[in-house]
Amino acid sequence: MGHAHSTGFLRDIPGRAPWSSHGFRPWLVAVGVAWVLVAVPCLRAQSSKPTDYDVKAAYLYNFGHFVEWPANVASAQNDSFTVCVLGQDPFGPVLDATLAGETIARKKVAAKRISTLQESGDCQILFLSSAEEARLDNVVKALNKQAVLTVSDMPQFSQRGGMIQFVLEGKKVRFEVNLAAVQRAGLTLSSELLKVATTVRRNAPSGD
């Protein structure tokens, strides 16, 4: 029951196609060996069992479908839907692979790694890795009333003013929602999302 991935999510993984190609040339063999050295762990992880971050990356993308951003927000007026990773990037290429070619609300989805909050101007979703716990309060404060969906897997995130917090339930990746924070930011969350959330915090005392 823990397999959250559908085949569809995996079908565009690069490097699969060459296995099916024909012809062996010495340089191609060399390049292939080099690629294998780098790619195999990744492939192995994906093909056998998706890692938490595989799931989380997919979740990030999915969240985009269940959240409505105010139309007047500048970021919303952009051509693309940007998923930003602030600070340390736990996803690696997974996120890019997940988002590649996807669209949300007819906008191309793109991943953007930022280091400072100033760079988050055009972000619709901002992921904050658990390594950035120190910057949490700043982020929460800075993005208060900004139409940016904040997501993190650090503990206490939703209690501390974050909007969606990944939690592990056994081996399954779940999430909690701080609805007050979401509503404060002017975002609308689909009830569907709330339905599958482990916890929905409506009046976060830590907010104001």
Partner: peptide, 11 residues
């Protein structure tokens, strides 16, 4: 669909 997307059979 959300349960599927977010892997929540209970829901």
């Amino acid at each position: 669909v959300s349960a599927l997307l977010f892997n929540d059979p209970h829901s």
